[in-house]
Design a protein around this nucleic acid. Structure first.
Lengths: 239, 239
DNA sequence: CGAGGGTTTGAAGTGCATCAAATAGTGTGG
DNA sequence: CCACACTATTTGATGCACTTCAAACCCTCG
């Protein structure tokens, strides 16, 4: 079983600077969890001694107020890691995590991660890079919510689902249901539905369920990125 | 002159884990800049080989779209550092920086910072902690904008200006002009003005120019934090 | 086929933005 | 110390985008 786990990790970007023996050590203390849709893995402010790696499915990170309103932090999938930042937050999870699809995840011990980072400078640098990338993403998220209207935000979201170098006609499949996309973008499902329709007024596209056909990407870039700060079209900012 | 600079740095949180000789080395290659109000220090996507430390004044970090709309990333003051994250962004500044008051800042060489971080694990850990803290702040910012209305956002902002343990009556002085506070909070000056008035309907307070008198902090916490995710009242989350 | 969730549509309300103009405040030169 | 110029702030009126509530529709799956 240990063998299986370490194989998953070896192929993940997050672990690329990990010494091989560290991966083995961590794997030995890890286990696979089958999380059915709706399963809550941990909640905001829980003490954190493990972090997670996603083998399959989708995990929603979020926080909620006393009256149940929630704000989505992120929605992650295969090969991504979450919960690890608790290391720097006094070992307390800074958000809640819930499976929004049936998912398979690996639960890993935080202690080893911590000591590895402390002892492997390269690893620390990687970690910082990824934190910086995330930071930029968040900045952009704030920017999006301040400067863009609903159809533009959707456009931006769609662009990020596409391979950066694609040209012309594309077919995009929404990764999860529309209600969730809406909340990811900070809008109501109704608004999402209407905004998606309005997007059709601006660019040539067709929506069939979760499939979206777009005649020409450039139109979308033009429309959605006109309210972006100077950086190159947002669809390659994940790089 | 070098002596002066290193003295500033030694007292700053950011440099607390720096070995003394590193501070001296960095100081030797640093210089003080007098930035008048309105002076732009660098713009988004400029190549970055220096970072900055604020001796006095206020610096606005922001990005802007082609049509001039701007979104505020942060507004910093004494003892704070900015631009250093470019290390992890291919040495490109991820935002623009402008003095919004006459300011004195120190320009420091990035190269040394980089090598220090690579060679001092403790420093790297500190850096990550501060990045994590910032991350949480950003998450909260997104949350604020999604879940709170204008008066609540203002309330939250005010709370963060107060010493966490204060009780009862307080006098808060806005750190910079209202227009800037408004943009920091992602709203128009007009909205800020009206929202500040509306806040009076909910809690007992008086506004005289940039001074705000509040009868009882708890009222404000109650009102502003009712839309916060479960964490303790937002005014001590900076810790 | 029918139940239940996801999605869309309609109608009405709200909050913030925008535009325009009045007012307060600040710093200047006389 | 005053008048003027200029900026910051407030106030009013109006519009638009998004939300909310309600109901219909659609799709999938037992």
């Amino acid at each position: 079983m240990t063998v299986v786990i370490s194989n998953f990790l070896k192929n993940a970007p997050f672990f690329k600077s990990f010494p091989n023996d560290a991966i083995e050590t961590i794997s030995a203390q890890s286990h696979i969890i089958n999380a059915d849709k709706g399963k809550v893995l941990f909640v905001n402010e829980d003490p954190a001694d493990r972090f997670y790696f996603i083998i399959s499915g989708w995990i929603k990170l979020y926080r909620e107020t006393i009256d149940g309103a929630q704000s989505i932090v992120d929605i992650l999938t295969i090969n991504q890691v979450f919960g690890e930042t608790a290391i720097f937050q006094n070992d307390i999870y800074p958000f809640s995590a819930e499976a929004v699809e049936d998912s398979q995840i690996i639960s890993l011990p935080m202690a080893i991660l911590k000591s590895e980072i402390e002892n492997t400078p390269k690893l620390a640098m990687d970690m910082m890079s990824s934190m910086a990338r995330y930071r930029k993403q968040q900045d952009q998220e704030i920017e999006n919510r301040t400067l863009k209207n609903a159809p533009q935000r959707i456009g931006c979201f769609l662009l990020r689902l596409i391979d950066q170098n694609k040209k012309g006609r594309v077919i995009i499949t929404l990764p999860y249901d529309k209600t969730l996309v809406a909340s990811r973008l900070g809008m109501q499902p109704e608004t999402f539905s209407r905004a998606l329709n309005k997007l059709k007024d601006y660019i040539d596209m067709d929506v069939k369920g979760s499939e979206i056909h777009i005649r020409n990407i450039d139109d979308l870039v033009n429309y959605a990125c006109s309210a972006c700060s100077s950086e190159f079209p947002c669809h390659d900012m994940t790089a």
